[in-house]
Design a protein around this nucleic acid. Sequence first.
DNA 1: GGCTTTTGTCACCATACGGTGACATATAGG
DNA 2: CCTATATGTCACCGTATGGTGACAAAAGCC
Lengths: 220, 220
Amino acid sequence: MVTKAAAKPKPRPRDRAKTETTILDAVSRLILRDGLSGVGINALAREAGVDKVLIYRYFGDLDGLYRAYAEHGDFWWSVEEMLAATADAPNAAEALKRGLRHHTAAMRQRPVTLAVIAAEPANRTPLVIALEEVREKRSVELMKQEAARHGGWGDVDIAAVTALLAAAIDYLAARALKIRVYGGVEIKTDKNWERMLAAVDAMIDGLFAASAPETRSRKS
Amino acid sequence: MVTKAAAKPKPRPRDRAKTETTILDAVSRLILRDGLSGVGINALAREAGVDKVLIYRYFGDLDGLYRAYAEHGDFWWSVEEMLAATADAPNAAEALKRGLRHHTAAMRQRPVTLAVIAAEPANRTPLVIALEEVREKRSVELMKQEAARHGGWGDVDIAAVTALLAAAIDYLAARALKIRVYGGVEIKTDKNWERMLAAVDAMIDGLFAASAPETRSRKS
DNA sequence: GGCTTTTGTCACCATACGGTGACATATAGG
DNA sequence: CCTATATGTCACCGTATGGTGACAAAAGCC
């Protein structure tokens, strides 16, 4: 859907701020359509309907563009937001369950982030690295705060468990952008995400029930 | 102008079979070093020390090369192998635990497969698609056979659980090829993989303990 | 007004890519 | 032996890429 075709000799208005946001918006569109590796200078200039020399002028080079893009948008949950989402959890197990549900929703709402995650192992661009750093910092910080809130995690190896479950969610959500199925499960529908989150809940319940009697939360 | 250290005109022996395996071997090396997207005609010809025209002659084009490569190697566990690994499991929970451990070992032993998985969401090449098909077929088949063995899975949503846990393992193993850490956990060491597998075991134990001690309660 | 800076447009460069035609020569078949 | 084919080498094409220099005109400033 090209709204501004080059067929019309309409000169771009001289407005740097607007041009910059036009470019950054085109980055999002390009990431969603072609993935992170689709964001090159030429393709981007084409998509934005902007001469590529402006990209160089305003952002330096491709890496500068990635850095600017990383700072411009909202790609992740914040620790505060997450703490609020788990605030009224009666125990550690419940907090973990709610946290993972919030994480799932936050990820599935951010297709651009998912596309970046999908490209993570392959493209080590500044954008990917910037998002990784945000994620690592926030997840470690969150774990610390939640631990303080609930007096530790009993016998549960919380780092391993959260790494596993968050990895599963990230991967499946990212994969669902382009691929319908994984392991026989249709991963694009809300219904099946609810199924998977129910499975996560059940695993967490079983885990905490077996390990730490004082934080036991039996399903009723 | 950069002249190669040895300007020695070493003629390649005229041996099609050997040349073909030279090329396919170079594909593996290239995937490991630069990822799937690093496998292009020019880079491959360079890496293999073979004129690119031979690649075209023997494999048609890039897609043909990918297809030939997909058929040439061992990229996944077989259903028989997996059934053998879980043969003496006393119950469904134990079978699932052993299966996931075998899956983990099988994946971590196959870095090329992991590199392809890492590229999956981004590069939809025939190689990626071929491996996906193998995986989907085998995992579904395995689930069927295991279900028959253990008389179903009780109340456990086995498809959701295995999809989640296998996704976590695949993603973390693939990620570990290039990136050291995820969610604060160092994912390259055997020690931490054992930690994570222990967490998987605990989750599965909890899951089956909580759901149906007797597999008598089948939904009608 | 006149001058400088900023914004935008265009033409161009060197390089890499996937792909192909023409040629050389070692091997196989008669 | 001689010839045909298979194998390997080389030069080249069109296109795309990341990146830059030169120029026009609008906007800001005196």
